[in-house]
Design a protein around this nucleic acid. Structure first.
Lengths: 148, 148
DNA sequence: GTGATACTGATACTCGTTCTCAACGATTGT
DNA sequence: ACAATCGTTGAGAACGAGTATCAGTATCAC
């Protein structure tokens, strides 16, 4: 224990082919895939990749701000989104489809909640539930169970 | 296959001691316990109860509108709440405490989102993130890792 | 009582995710 | 060129939350 362990200070992060492939899949997706779905799609570009690597890459992308992790509140697996700007989602209760919502909660409401609760509010997660246009008309949308 | 199976039509639901105990625990809790926490607490009143029974009872209470199931969006287990009136939550990012928020999203905002997305909005889930009063002052709140 | 059926607890199982570990490979110092 | 270092990988074991199965029990209608 003679050396003082100079505390690395520099975090090495390589953009490996596997990580690149995961990011590409996420960017190309206009739905909100789960980790398992990302894994399936990534295997086209990187056939030998393991699921652990996909999970690690996703966690890394989320940690570095290149992706968002969503839990759509329905107890199903986490979803990932390469759209990292502030936005919410509307989830179809019938087919599970999730679309982006760009309208933020009014500042006044957040301020009021902070005042009443005593919390310092740093952010929020908002999901709307309902029926998507496809499932409203004829209800011919993809049946329940499909989740994208 | 001679009998025509008259399709019961009547769903029997018994308020068994186990179900009563689960409901009592939920009513007595002012935090938002997970199923595992409910299980722990219920075992005081009903020592021999099994975890499957607790899960079944919770699902039943949620289905009959006697409790709400919350997923606080952080990938942790579902939480349960005997306060069944429409309300949201603010979750402390430090200690995990969740408090009730009674201020709804303005109707105008919901209508606008329905119009823009084409969805028929039937509801929403909203969680605020931030620091609770205890964790702001001195940061002496219970450390991270504890979740209630 | 008898039969039907709701309910129970134990346990095996599924599923999403994380951990462990040996092997690999890029980078750096010599 | 070479070896040491260390981040990264894939395979698979392990984990935790929740569900399904099943034989036994409790309750109800008759």
């Amino acid at each position: 224990m003679t050396d003082v362990n100079p505390m690395p200070e520099r975090i090495e992060l390589r953009l490996t082919p596997q990580r690149g492939a995961v990011l590409e899949v996420l960017k190309a997706a206009d739905d909100h895939p789960t980790a398992a779905e990302v894994y399936e799609r990534v295997r086209v570009a990187a056939p030998g990749i393991g699921s652990a690597t996909v999970y690690r890459a996703l966690a890394l992308l989320v940690a570095t701000g290149h992706a968002l992790e969503l839990s759509l509140g329905d107890g199903t697996a986490a979803r990932y989104d390469a759209n990292t700007s502030r936005h919410d989602h509307a989830v179809c209760e019938r087919c599970g489809r999730a679309v982006d919502i760009d309208q933020p909660v009014p500042d006044g409401m957040v301020a009021e909640i902070a005042r009443r609760s005593g919390f310092t509010i740093t952010g929020y997660d908002l999901q709307f539930r309902g029926l998507c246009p496809a499932c409203q008309s004829g209800g011919a949308g993809q049946g329940p169970g499909r989740r994208q």
